[in-house]
Nucleic acid binder design. Structure first.
Lengths: 260, 260
DNA sequence: CAAACACTTCGGCCAAGACGGTAGTGGTTC
DNA sequence: GAACCACTACCGTCTTGGCCGAAGTGTTTG
């Protein structure tokens, strides 16, 4: 009757590292097979099967059978939104290891976040748009100005997705940069445009995006963003046996500070 | 290095029913003592103490010592946002037991959601505002129109919280009604105004709000909302032996009188 | 048909952690 | 001072649930 128990059920589901890894991997909107998910989770296929069944039963994942394989994806944008929320808090968390994040330099630079762009580039774009008064952003919402609408029109970005009286811009707190980037229909349109015009490309088996030479030029001329691609171009996909038991004991003294 | 493990840590924390109940209880922005939280969680104080330490270490709760008691509250609005996300998905979940929710008729009708109103009334207000073109809402954002700004000015609702160029309206999916209500600065201003003018009152020890006769009249004239208060006016606070065990021993007379 | 493949079910092992009893610490009241 | 209260630390018990090996189902390939 209280919502408590219900949110506990969902949270407990996400609370297992293996399942959390699976969900993270699906955060970019792709659909992956059970075997692929077993790999990213770092568990045996039969273990993954159990996890996926639970996630499916709980309504977090949608399933599509195709021949002898089963494709999974997040059941809805609401699930992605929930995971975003968790990421933000998880990153916020105790100051202990905020930027311990060495690996994944490519990810930090540019990646997809469900249906829009995230990372340094995305934050830079958002900053620029705000600075030019093309969008208004705060922690509670976003809004495209008339100037912004013209800007996108000239650029050829397709905003038809949103009807004329619709609001369709929202901020999404970037978990690596800790600043907002553009999400919602506007964010999705930007990503779509960027992929369409070869500004960025998907990295295989990853949420990461690489900025192409064309992209570097366009970002500079269009948004005034200095292209500073990650130094390490290769950036191996760590096979990640991960699943390191969460044993690291956290010790904390001043966690009272109200960090708004 | 992947965010997976980190979100798993946070989610696992929320994934325990006792802790989830504590967090739920704090969702209205109040600050509660360890003993009160032990009660809502349905566990012994020493167990609660452990849970609270974990939540604090993880940065989900903020602590304020006062004499011999310790007051806890959510560490930031981001935590509330995360819990909102979980609630939405938890409610969405498997269709099997969607509206099994009999108890809590009062809660369904009107309640607080961190810093704004939720429930049937809040959804009705949001609907009305949209219908009158005072706000624009979709799943990704909200926006106050000029007409809406005038409306609130006339009504005497204080929107100063938000600077003039700021966006400050956002939708929040109501987990009982499954439709959006107003959150963000606008939502907070409405709740503040409603409490200030005795349209609604807090129910002791609960997130529930009761609409006063004044409120019924004002909601009708101002928003055109037919007051349909929950049939069962008394609606006992179920003492909820809930999570069994201890509970019965602890009897509370009147904690929580903390009337924000 | 047999073999390879994708995936699921079953069963037993094992560790994490939730629980409250007991025993403390520090703050408040009389 | 003593009594009392809110809260915390430690400890042993016990349940939950993640894990993989082995075996089974259904699908595609040769």
């Amino acid at each position: 009757m209280d919502p408590g128990p219900k949110i506990a059920q969902v949270a407990a589901l996400v609370g297992d590292p293996a399942r959390a890894n699976m969900l993270s991997a699906l955060m970019d909107g792709r659909t992956l097979t059970a075997t692929e998910l077993a790999y990213v989770a770092g568990v045996a296929p039969q273990t993954a099967s159990g996890h996926l069944a639970k996630l499916g039963d709980a309504g977090l994942l949608a399933l599509e059978k195709q021949g002898r394989r089963r494709y999974f994806r997040l059941a809805s944008p609401l699930v992605a939104r929930m995971l975003e929320g968790l990421m933000v808090v998880a990153q916020e968390g105790p100051a202990r290891q905020r930027n311990l994040w060495r690996g994944g330099e490519t990810l930090r630079h540019a990646r997809t976040c469900y249906d829009h762009m995230a990372g340094r580039i995305a934050v830079a774009i958002a900053d620029r748009m705000v600075q030019q008064s093309f969008v208004l952003l705060d922690e509670d919402g976003g809004q495209l100005t008339d100037a912004g609408r013209s800007f996108f029109d000239e650029l050829g970005v397709d905003l038809r997705l949103a009807s004329k009286r619709r609001v369709f811009c929202r901020p999404c707190l970037d978990w690596s940069e800790r600043r907002p980037h553009l999400a919602g229909a506007v964010g999705a349109a930007i990503l779509h445009h960027a992929l369409e015009h070869d500004w960025v490309e998907h990295v295989r088996d990853s949420r990461a995006l690489v900025v192409t030479p064309v992209g570097v030029r366009e970002l500079a001329t269009t948004f005034g963003i200095e292209g500073t691609p990650p130094k390490d171009g290769r950036e191996e996909q760590v096979p990640s046996p991960s699943r390191g038991r969460v044993s690291d004991r956290i010790r904390f003294s001043q966690w009272g500070a109200h960090r708004q």
